[in-house]
Design a protein around this nucleic acid. Sequence first.
DNA 1: CTGAAAGCGCTAACAG
DNA 2: CTGTTAGCGCTTTCAG
Lengths: 345, 345
Amino acid sequence: MLKGKATSFDVAKLAGVSQSAVSRVFTPGASASKKTADKVREAATKLGYRPNALARAVVSGRSRIIGLVVAYLENQFYPDVLEKLSNALQERGYHVLIFMAAQTAGRIDEVVDEILDYQVDGIIAASVALSSELTERCNAAGVPMVLFNRSQDDPGMSAVTSDNVAGGRKAAEFLIAGGHTKIGYVAGWEGASTQRDREAGFVRALEAHGLRLHAREVGQFTTEAAREAARRMFAQDPPDAVFAANDHMALAVMDTVRFELGLDVPGDVSVIGYDDVPAADWPAYALTTVRQPANRMVAETVDILLNTIEDTNTPPRRIAIDGPLIVRGSARVPDGWETGKGPDT
Amino acid sequence: MLKGKATSFDVAKLAGVSQSAVSRVFTPGASASKKTADKVREAATKLGYRPNALARAVVSGRSRIIGLVVAYLENQFYPDVLEKLSNALQERGYHVLIFMAAQTAGRIDEVVDEILDYQVDGIIAASVALSSELTERCNAAGVPMVLFNRSQDDPGMSAVTSDNVAGGRKAAEFLIAGGHTKIGYVAGWEGASTQRDREAGFVRALEAHGLRLHAREVGQFTTEAAREAARRMFAQDPPDAVFAANDHMALAVMDTVRFELGLDVPGDVSVIGYDDVPAADWPAYALTTVRQPANRMVAETVDILLNTIEDTNTPPRRIAIDGPLIVRGSARVPDGWETGKGPDT
DNA sequence: CTGAAAGCGCTAACAG
DNA sequence: CTGTTAGCGCTTTCAG
């Protein structure tokens, strides 16, 4: 036994039933008498039989595979999300085929084609933008897709993000309440909707208080570019506060400002980020930041995707979940500010 | 066109050839005249046809899917490795089905069964230990497996790691040369071969110099446990140096020692880690550490696995790749020490 | 509830 | 080189 390559026929023979009986016993919704089921189960374990998921997928048209495309794992937010997504999907009987998308626009089309080849039941695209042609291709193939932490104008495309403009606004209001007036912004990659929305919310709130951006530099969401952005920003007429479009850059800004420029945070300059990655909570940084409610974002993403898979008529949804400002030590705290952090539910 | 569900029959009809001709055109090693190939290709693009990878897998017995099981993505070393593995595999025409193994021993058996259901061509187990029963099951199913960053006594099982005992030794020698005498060790999870080997190399080198561990606490490879380990270790008769079994813990130790205990690193205590994760190079830490040569480890892992898949007779290999000590600022540098870091090739 | 039979989309001999 | 013919392992009508 444990030959490891027993088929449903082998099991059928051993159990003294038909092959289709075996299939039924291993098919969730199917009907089989307790008696046959028992015989089959016994024979199956004796032979080490397990249904071939691929053969099943070919004939049933459902692979229970979800394609996940993700751009960069360097930003700790994504490993975190990947783990949560994978677990949530596993719990519901799905499995994740993973694809790293080099941010190069060309490669991603290739990648989506390869995903489609595997007859995935759905696709989750984390922090990548798709061309409308790609979207079309997935639609044609009948494969639903949901965008994670990215949104697109296309109203037919489901997307879940945090409320980026509200988040940007919260950062601005905290800084303003703290008495800052020379406020800089370190932007992420300009092609990202998150970058655009966070900046929009931030700048709008500034303007509502009669302020303008004191400085703006692009940090591309990477450590190195963010460091250079900080150097440029502080080269002359330095700001007294800076908001970075994500934590990954905010951490780099803090390091540069402290260890290269010799400034004190938050004494000389306040720094705020976005995401609330684990490192934001490390004492060396104690980064004040807008939290992305990853658990809820993941839950919504999985719900939307699986609902769409199970009922093709499910309309697309675009969700922006509000996230709290987590006050720690990297930005001056306004007098009498309420600290209520609240967990990510 | 672009119906998205064209079969090889549809293409055959449109191209005026047989279905098997279509199959051949899309099969790497097959033979077809340029003439038919052209006709088929044209028809295929016109219909948006792409071979169904699952059907192909069922009949050919090769899915070109690799199962990757990974335990925790919190330690930045793993996202990094995941990205590299995924890219290397994609380049060679394989795809990654990912499984998160809750470190609970029971769940992992389940996970391996699910992997096997998908007829994967091979399995990479990153930082997880498998029961010998599991190993047996994979062997029975004819699915080769290689352990990444973990090794097992079973000589039939391929494994690639860094040279953990050499690494532990390097850490010890650096500390000893720096004049430290009260040296502590923060251990990882005791079930891990990496933990065991790093400690063995470290302690052995200490003994070779007539020293013993001044203190030892278990940090479980997690931030929280490492912090507590540090607190215990410094509660009385504090060490003047500590080696942590990985960077993830070393960072936590540094934070605790600096911000809770008010000590200076490396003034009051030197800290050394293992891995060389990105955060080790951040100015706030400047962690001296033993680098794991991730690129080479990944390349070896992929080579071994794919070779074994393509030729079942390939004997198992167990590789331990030497990694350099990267000297930064978290540990006192001995007089006249050569700093040659060298990149990870 | 159960078995027989017809495929799913594709690859792999096998003759020509 | 090409078409014909068997299947791969399984789900799913369809009669009973």
